[in-house]
Design a binder for these strands. Structure first.
Lengths: 288, 288
DNA sequence: TATGTATTGGAATTATTATTTCATATTCCC
DNA sequence: GGGAATATGAAATAATAATTCCAATACATA
C-alpha cells in the first residue's frame, strides 16, 4: 500500500503566491503539456478564476484532462480546488487601490499588532509615491538632469534622515561610473572636501524639516563657491530652496514619527539614471 | 399579442454600475424576496461572482428559483448571464491597478523622456510594496521583533545596495534610543567590531543577490559566535537565510538595472519601530 | 532496437448546477 | 369576501461541467 499524493507531498499551496512559487520552482521538470498549461495559468490567472475546465483547456491548447492532471500534480485533488486559489486571489485583490490604501491605513491606525505597524509604513510609502507621481514638475526634472550631466564631479550632501538616500545615490552613481563624492561628516573633513568643488561640478542636496544645520551650512558654503545645487526638500520655505539652482518639493507621508523615503528615493534614482543616460547620449553624439 | 420582456425593457445592464443603478432605481417596486436578493447582491457582489445559484440563494435566505427570477426581472435570461456582470466587474477592478502600473512601466520602457525613467522607478516601488504587503509572514515579523527586542545591542549589517537601508535603520534605532552598531567597512575594523558581539545581542543583516561576499562572511562569523540573526534577503537560496534565526523574503521589482528599496525599507522600519514599541511595553510591565 | 514507463488525447461517466414546473400562498382589487 | 393576478417554495428536470478511464503515443533505458 502506498501513501496517496496528499500525504506524500508537502502541503498544497493555499494562496496564489505560494502556488506561483511552486509552479516556477517545478517548471523545469514538468511534462510538455503540463508546462504549457502552467505557463498559461500564470499568464492568465483571471481566466483560470472564471473559466470552466473545458474553456480554459481550449484557450491553453490542451485537453481538459491535462488541466486536471496539472492540478493534481500540484497536490490539489482536482481542477475545482485549484481554481479556488485563483478565485481567492481575485477576492483579495479586488478592492481598488485607493480603497486598499485606506484599509491599510485604518488597520494600521486602529490595529494593535506589529502587522499594523508594517501596514502603516507600506501605506505611508504608497501615499508618498502617489503624491509625487502627481506633482512632479517635469521641467524641473529635465533641468536638474541637464545640470548634473554637465558636472565633472557630483557631490552628494545629506544627513540624518536623508542620509540613506545620499548613500543610495552614491552607490548608483558609482555603478554608472559617474564621478561622485559623498559629503559625510565622519572625520569632520567636510569643509576641506567642499573646498575642492568648483563651478564645473554640481551638488545634489537633500534635507527635510527639521533641516540639519550642517547640511544647510555646507550647502551655503558650496553655493557661495559658485557650485550649482539641485535640492530635494519639503517646502519653498526650506533654506535649501534658497541656495538651489533647481529644487524639488517632495511631500513624504509619515507613520509613527518616521517619514517615508520612497518618493525621495524614486526621484533620486530618476535623477541618477537620467544623468547616466544623458551622458551616454551626449558622449555618443560627440564621437559621431 | 404583447411584446416579450426583452423587447419591452430597456437594454439589459452590461456593466456593474448600470446594473447597480437599475437595481437601486427599481428597489421600491420589487417583490419582497426579490428585493431581499437584490440587497444581498449589492452588499456581497463577490459572492455573486463566485458562488453557485444554490449557495448564493442559501446565503441570502431565498430559493434558487428566486435568484433566477431576479435575474430575469432585470432582463437577463438567467442567473448565469447576471453572474457574468459580477465577474466582469472583478476582472476589471482587479486589473485597474495592475494596468495602471503596467501602463506606467510601459511608458517608462517605451517612452523616451526622463519623466519615463521617473515613472519606472515609481512603478517598481509600488509593485514591490504591493508584493510585500501580500506576502509578508506575520509570524516571522513577530518572531523577529521579539528577538531584536531582547538584544542588548543591535548590530546592523549591509553593504552596497542594501547599505542605505542599514543607515536608515541605524538612524531610526538611534532616535528610539535603542543601542545599535552599524557594521561598515570604512576603516576595515569590522572583524574587531564583530568580536564584541555576544549571544545577548542580535543582528539585522540585509543582502540581495549578488550577495556581497563581505556581508556573507561577516554574517557567518557573527552567527558562529552565537549571535542571533534576523535576515532580509531575496530567496531561500540566499546564503544569509542559512545563518539566520528568522529571515524575510523580499522581492523588489527593478527598473533600469536598479532595484527598488521601498519594500525593504518598509519592512526595516516596521522591525525598528516594532522593537521600540515592544521595549516600551515590557519596560512598563517590569515597573508595574 | 526492444521493452517498460510516462504522457497525452479523446470519449464515457459521474457530479454538480441552472433552470423549469407546478402546487401553494399571498396580495390586491372589485 | 371572492376571485384574479402575482409571488413563493420545493422538487423534478435539463444542462453543463468535472472527472475518470483507456487506448495510443512518445520517451527513456538497457
Amino acid at each position: 500500500m502506498s501513501l496517496d499524493r496528499a500525504t506524500m507531498d508537502e502541503r498544497v499551496p493555499r494562496d496564489f503566491e505560494t502556488l506561483r512559487a511552486t509552479i516556477l520552482d517545478r517548471r523545469e521538470s514538468l511534462p510538455r503539456r503540463i508546462a504549457q498549461i502552467a505557463a498559461y495559468a500564470l499568464d492568465n490567472p483571471d481566466d483560470i478564476a472564471f473559466g470552466t475546465a473545458a474553456s480554459i483547456a481550449a484557450s491553453a491548447g490542451v485537453q481538459p484532462s491535462t488541466l486536471i492532471r496539472f492540478a493534481q500534480q500540484l497536490g490539489f485533488d482536482g481542477f475545482t480546488s485549484l481554481q479556488q486559489v485563483f478565485r481567492e486571489r481575485l477576492r483579495e485583490r479586488n478592492s481598488s487601490y485607493d480603497e486598499r490604501l485606506l484599509a491599510l491605513r485604518a488597520k494600521a491606525e486602529g490595529g494593535a499588532g506589529h502587522r499594523a505597524i508594517f501596514d502603516g509604513f507600506v501605506a505611508a510609502a504608497s501615499t508618498s509615491l502617489n503624491d509625487i507621481s502627481r506633482t512632479l514638475d517635469e521641467t524641473h526634472l529635465e533641468d536638474a538632469i541637464s545640470l548634473l550631466a554637465r558636472a565633472e564631479t557630483i557631490y552628494v550632501l545629506a544627513k540624518r534622515r536623508s542620509y540613506p538616500v545620499a548613500t543610495y545615490i552614491a552607490y548608483a552613481l558609482g555603478k554608472l561610473k559617474i564621478r561622485n563624492q559623498l559629503i559625510e561628516s565622519a572625520a569632520g573633513l567636510n569643509a576641506e572636501m567642499i573646498a575642492f568643488a568648483t563651478p564645473a561640478d554640481a551638488v545634489i542636496a537633500i534635507s527635510f524639516s527639521p533641516y540639519a544645520p550642517a547640511t544647510i551650512e555646507e550647502a551655503r558654503a558650496i553655493s557661495e563657491r559658485g557650485v550649482p545645487i539641485v535640492a530635494i526638500t519639503d517646502s519653498s520655505f526650506s533654506p535649501l530652496a534658497q541656495f538651489a539652482r533647481v529644487w524639488f518639493e517632495v511631500a513624504e507621508a509619515d507613520f509613527a514619527g518616521f517619514r517615508s523615503l520612497s518618493a525621495t528615493m524614486a526621484l533620486a534614482m530618476a535623477l541618477t539614471v537620467g544623468v547616466g543616460e544623458k551622458r551616454r547620449d551626449s558622449g555618443r553624439r560627440r564621437k559621431a
